[in-house]
Computed example of a mutant assay.
Amino acid sequence: MPLPPLSPAEFRTIVQRCTGVPAEELRLDDPQLTLDEVGVDSLGLLNILTEVENRYDIRLDAEGLTRLPEILALINEKLAPSTRTDNSVVIDAPLELVWDLTNDVANWPNLFSEYAAAEILHQTGDTVRFRLTMHPEPDGTVWSWVSERVMDRAAGSVRAHRVETGPFAFMNIHWTYRQTDAGIELRWVQEFHMRPDAPADDETMAGHINRNSKVQLALIKDRVEAAARAGAAVTR
């Protein structure tokens, strides 16, 4: 039977018990909250992971993770089986152009129709952390969150995850780029699990993601192919 996600409040209690850090300093709604910032050393992290592993009979590999919200997302990924969506489109354009345009996160509001803004928060090499803000819904609600993506040009692969998970227990996205006879196949595989208090369950969210992915991928195809034609026209 799937285990329920570990709530921020429960995780805060575990961290406080294992490290002695005051609860008021454990601002888990802050995606930038690092272990160093709250004074959690390697021994404290080991104590946290050990308690969670023993409590839930899971194994955790937090190597490279330095932020408490990321560690909570890792725990919840292990606790619950993910729901998976898989969508793709073939773009008639050179791989280099497809890669460059779709990985220019700052320009995403001009590539996707759903984003009002994309703000780069930090970039080191092929890893970029950014905030996405959507256009307001009819009732005025504006959704915004922080994500991070790691690009591997040689492998034609990008792995991304939500740092601010919002209604998700976790959300991971894998982009792949594959050369075909008809062009470049851009494929999105998303794996996620919703929190118990989320406004939608996994099945409902999967339906929404599948519908929206088809719309966005078709739009990206049109805009990248238009850019390819414009470039070809200039070089002739």
Score class of each variant (00 low, 15 high):
2 P>W: 07
7 S>N: 00
10 E>P: 01
14 I>V: 13
15 V>C: 09
23 A>Q: 13
23 A>C: 13
32 Q>S: 15
36 D>G: 04
37 E>W: 06
40 V>R: 03
50 T>H: 12
51 E>L: 10
52 V>G: 01
58 I>C: 09
63 E>Y: 11
74 L>S: 00
77 E>G: 00
80 A>G: 06
85 T>W: 03
90 V>S: 05
91 I>T: 00
92 D>Y: 10
95 L>I: 09
95 L>K: 10
96 E>G: 12
98 V>N: 01
98 V>Y: 01
100 D>M: 07
101 L>W: 02
104 D>P: 02
105 V>N: 02
112 F>R: 06
113 S>T: 14
115 Y>E: 11
117 A>E: 15
119 E>C: 07
125 G>M: 04
128 V>T: 09
136 P>E: 06
142 V>H: 03
145 W>M: 01
150 V>Y: 07
154 A>I: 11
160 A>S: 13
162 R>A: 04
165 T>W: 04
170 F>M: 00
170 F>C: 01
176 T>Y: 01
177 Y>D: 06
181 D>L: 13
186 L>Q: 05
188 W>H: 15
189 V>T: 09
190 Q>T: 15
193 H>T: 12
194 M>Y: 06
194 M>G: 04
197 D>V: 00
198 A>Q: 00
199 P>Q: 08
204 T>Y: 08
204 T>A: 14
205 M>Q: 03
205 M>F: 04
206 A>E: 00
208 H>G: 12
209 I>P: 08
214 K>D: 12
214 K>F: 11
215 V>S: 12
218 A>L: 12
219 L>N: 11
220 I>M: 11
220 I>F: 03
221 K>S: 11
221 K>C: 12
235 T>C: 11
